[in-house]
């Protein structure tokens, strides 16, 4: 099969970019989307051109490295899927595929499809943890956790930090990402002591970093590869309000 691609090419953070059209031959339905880009890149290199830069590592939907806009949708077609989990059989060869990087003010483009998502690390550094020291922990069974709480925590902890939620949000908000972490930790008894300050400092930090405000459009959860639910945002908002009321 043969596909036509329109790929965003940009040589560096300050360069101006544009969509460049490529044709890729010999694509098989079993190929993953990224393997299709590999094929393109091999060809570009042999022709002496720079390959298309894109982030990826695990190629099985868990590291959160990959992520591009495909025809305007973060992580492309397919529900609850990362870019690396797409296969070419999901694409119609008759239609060109438009591939662009995440677009959000706090995610500057580094090169081609690679963006700088380190702002998400800053949000976690602001409080996305439980303050405990190595070696100071009590026996793991000293603190039972009710199964529903454990399940809520787990569901939220599945976030892979890919940033698709930010890219999809019309406001460029990172609320779903932040809420996933505050829900994970805030649902557990271990996370209670810092629950409200954590919510407050993480939200303040994301605002300072230039992420937009959340207006609950729900675009984030629609593209989230891990199906992080919108209810986490309600929980986060509640915790932030409580922090304000308690003066935490």
């Amino acid at each position: 099969m043969k596909y036509t691609l329109r790929v965003w090419r940009q040589t560096g953070p300050t360069a101006t970019g544009s969509l460049v059209e490529y044709e890729v031959d010999d694509v098989t339905p079993d190929m993953s989307f990224l393997e299709m880009l590999d094929v393109l890149n091999e060809r570009l290199q042999l022709a002496g051109d720079a390959p298309v830069a894109f982030d990826h590592d695990c190629r099985e939907g868990i590291c959160g490295a990959c992520g591009v806009m495909i025809d305007g949708v973060a992580h492309g077609p397919g529900k609850a899927t990362t870019t690396c989990q797409l296969h070419m059989r999901q694409f119609d060869p008759a239609r060109p595929i438009v591939i662009e990087p995440w677009r959000a003010a706090p995610f500057p483009v580094v090169r081609d499809l690679v963006v700088d998502r380190s702002a998400l690390d800053r949000v976690i550094e602001a409080g996305g943890y439980i303050s405990t020291r190595t070696g100071a922990a009590p026996d793991a069974h000293a603190l039972p956790v009710a199964k529903p709480d454990a399940d809520t925590a787990f569901e939220a902890a599945a976030c892979i930090g890919c940033g698709a939620c930010v890219a999809a949000c019309p406001n460029g908000s990172s609320m779903l990402f932040t809420a996933a972490k505050t829900t994970h930790l805030g649902a557990l008894p271990q996370g209670q002591p810092e629950r409200f300050t954590r919510a407050r400092t993480m939200v303040e930090t994301q605002d300072d970093l230039g992420f937009g405000g959340c207006t609950l459009t729900g675009e984030c959860t629609a593209v989230c590869p891990k199906g992080i639910p919108l209810s986490t945002i309600a929980r986060l908002n509640h915790d932030v309000l409580t922090a304000a009321m308690r003066g935490d």
Binding site: T132, P144, A150
Partner: peptide
């Protein structure tokens, strides 16, 4: 054995039984 204690204290959401234990 200390690893499990450490991870639970950090909030690692290990699978649990209905009684709340690991």
């Amino acid at each position: 054995t200390s690893i499990i204690d450490q991870c639970v204290a950090q909030g690692v959401p290990f699978a649990r039984e209905y009684g709340g234990l690991l």
